Simulated assay, not measured.
Amino acid sequence: MPVPNFQPLEQGASLDRTNDYIFGFIRRLNDFLAHMDTLNIDELNADVINAGTINAALVKVGTALNSGGYIQIDSNGLTINDGTKDTFRVGLDGKPIMTGGTVRSNASGYPKLEFNSDNGLISAEQDANTRINLRSNGVSGNPQSLQFISSGNMAFLLAGITTVAEFIINTTNAMDINISSGRDLRLYGTRIFLESFSQTIDNATGQTLQGALNSKANAFTGASGTVYVSATSGGPANIPITFSSGVRTS
């Protein structure tokens, strides 16, 4: 409503007239204060505003925030800005967009779920030493990784490119990797690489594959040496074949 026009009380007014004027002034002032709007207020400065409902096309809080940051509510939803970028936005569809966040189940901080866009990280934490990390920027030069961390030890899956495109399963030195199945376990590939036969061990006996091969080789007692054969019937014997303890080696 517009600002009311308060006429002055005339000189020499009677007591009744003065009484009517004062009560009329109070009534009109109360009505004015109860219906303040943009017609009579351009700017309001206050330390505390208590209100049940604020209806406005734009609500912006920013003067007391550091680095030019602000909190804004408008027809598009709610925006929180740190002075350089929007750190949180939620539209009328209720779907928030944020640069990071933490979801905690209790005041002590754990367990918790953390989102950190600066580190490309989603972390589910049981406590300070036990967590699962999903990283989009990875580790050791690999762009993506899934990390399982417990008491300083880590097992992780890496997908990326080092020297070749590869998928890596690895652990720190204090952790083993166990792969088991209630049925068959199959490995398929163009080639399958082992570190060495000496590090391939029979779980039942503890014998290495290299040791088993050596024992088989030692069982042969045939002749050793080189013989020459012909590539064609009746041709010269010019192709060497070498034997070691009766086993052809070349």
Rank of each mutant, 00 (worst) to 15 (best):
N116C: 11
R89K: 13
Y70K: 09
I122R: 04
S215H: 09
E43C: 12
L58V: 14
A212Y: 11
S244W: 00
L113H: 07
L65P: 09
P143V: 08
A155V: 09
I149P: 04
L65A: 04
S150T: 12
A128C: 01
A237R: 13
V164S: 15
S198A: 15
R183T: 14
P240Y: 00
N40C: 15
A107V: 10
I41Q: 14
T163H: 13
G138W: 00
K95P: 06
F197C: 06
Y228T: 10
F193S: 13
S67E: 13
N66D: 15
S140D: 14
N116K: 09
I201R: 02
G189C: 00
Y188F: 09
G222Y: 01
P96C: 01
N119V: 11
T232F: 06
I73R: 08
G120P: 05
G52K: 14
T172S: 10
N133Y: 02
M1V: 15
S230R: 06
I192V: 11
K60F: 04
K60T: 14
R131Y: 06
T130N: 13
R131L: 06
I122F: 01
S67D: 15
K85I: 03
T130E: 04
I161H: 15
N45F: 09
G222L: 02
I241L: 10
Q11E: 15
G234R: 00
Q7E: 15
D37C: 05
G77P: 00
S181Y: 01
I22V: 10
Q207Y: 08
L92K: 12
G211E: 10
E195K: 13
L29S: 12
M98I: 06
D31N: 06
